[in-house]
Design a protein around this nucleic acid. Structure first.
Lengths: 114, 114
DNA sequence: ATTTTGGTTAAGCATGGAATTAAGTAACAA
DNA sequence: TTGTTACTTAATTCCATGCTTAACCAAAAT
């Protein structure tokens, strides 16, 4: 299916939960089955699967089932899209600050040299 | 107060809402008052202020009141922290993929040369 | 002094999210 | 073939979120 347009609502929503961030953290170290993913959490399996669904719906994680085990992995492109959204806004702001700094410096120079 | 520890729950929660992302987008172009921020939205002022509170609680935005107008601005450090969280996990995964690629390549070479 | 502007507080409502338990299915193992 | 493993589905509960209106307050303008 390879849907490429970023679903920021779902992505950031998915990232807002500590359980789901822990899952991403785990998956960043390599693929895992559902029950492997569930092991660290004091939580029913259906609860874990619901978190997983949130992660998949957002595109941050994908999975495929072989036999009876579903293996999950990170989708780095999606992570990257969220990253970029933040980066663009931040650099816009920071560059604006820089230009303001230059302007103030220039103005000060003029004052000095007048 | 200058609290420096990242509140990822609140940050990503704040980012999950399109109205709040639009506000950050607006603020990336420069500071704004509450009513300036509210203008683009078809929404009551209290609703906008509640969004703003979510943004401030997360640390992504700060504001200060002078006279009766409250001026809001982006906190680039907070943006950066969220960005880094994503980046660290993504690069971990990608590097792992690279090493796996190298391993497979090396194995193929051995096969070839045996 | 009165009105307008810019924002705040509070109460209430509707929807959605995180968890549970219980029951079901399908693959693999003995 | 019978049991165990690895999930899946469904129903339910409970709390959080996003929004509304109404009433309020204090600074600025007239």
């Amino acid at each position: 299916m390879l849907n490429q347009n970023p679903k920021f609502d779902l992505m950031f929503q998915a990232l807002a939960d500590p359980t789901r961030r822990a899952m991403i953290d785990r998956l960043s170290r390599g693929p895992a089955s559902v029950s492997e993913l569930a092991k660290p959490f004091d939580m029913s399996l259906p609860a874990v699967v619901q978190h997983l669904q949130a992660l998949e719906a957002s595109g941050l994680v994908s999975s495929q089932k072989v036999g009876r085990v579903r293996t999950c992995k990170i989708e780095p492109e999606a992570l990257s899209q969220a990253e970029q959204w933040l980066n663009e806004r931040r650099t816009l702001w920071v560059n604006r600050l820089d230009r303001l700094g230059e302007y103030l410096a220039a103005t000060a120079d003029e004052e000095e040299g007048k």
